[in-house]
Amino acid sequence: MSNPGTRAGERQLGRRVGSAFVFVILLIGAIFTLFPIYMGLLNSLKTEGNMLSNILSFPSRLEFGNYADAFEKTDFMRSLGNTLTVAAVGLAGIILFASMAGYKMSRTPGRVSGFLFGLFVLSMLIPFHSIMITLVKIAKELTVQGSTIGLGLMYIGLGVPMAIFLYHGFVKSIPRDLDEAAVVDGCGEIRLFFVVIFPLLLPVTATIAILNLLWMWNDFLFPLLMLTDSDSYTLLLSTNMLFGEYNNDWSAILASLVMAMLPVIVLYIVLQKYILNGIADGAIKG
């Protein structure tokens, strides 16, 4: 009992049992996480009859008909094009305008600058649901409702506060001497920003691009309110419509779900290091 060797042995055994326990818990968590994705993928490759008789098994024959079906019913290429248009317009505007504003506010001391920054930060607490009703009215009056470009423009307004916040913080890490040296060399304000400063903002620009791209790609309610015509539907709206119209045709629905999430999953697997770091940075500073 008092033998130190046994005690050390016991402790090591305890550690190993603990480690195995941790591994089992993590494994259960991982299975739970992947289960719906796996089931969706699996059953999207079966015919309806095959699916209902054996929902858990691997398809006896890979059936791509559901994909052809979903591709057509969701008008996939057009929906994808619409999603990309919205995201491109929104992203370009958010990055360009927020970097300019964030940089200049960070560099300018004084009350005006502080007030403007406070004004932007203020809105980060306002839930989208609290502005959506009036926003629909404004969108109608400005005739930006119903168009993908219009929706992209509106995303700029909603997206700049967080981006400005991140740029504002990041600019502080860039030495001021750089600005001054450039001005001494006869560089104008605009050239200074675009040629000298903007390239240095790349790390935070990447974070902002990822966060905003994900947000716009996966956002549902805002497009639902603004894009009323099925010609301008985004991927999510087309999928939602398909679900509403064929809500018992699970194999076609699952195929459309897989197609809608595939682009982000591929993006995630390729860029996961940047995405995970970006998320952690964005959340902690935001």
Partner: peptide, 30 residues
């Protein structure tokens, strides 16, 4: 300096004011 500041902030502020501040304050009114 202030004028340059406003020039740099203006585009962001415009979109923000129209699509965020206006509906927020408009919502209170409505």
């Amino acid at each position: 300096q202030t004028i340059t500041l406003l020039a740099f902030v203006f585009p962001a502020l415009l979109f923000y004011a129209v699509f965020m501040l206006a509906p927020a304050f408009g919502g209170i009114g409505y």
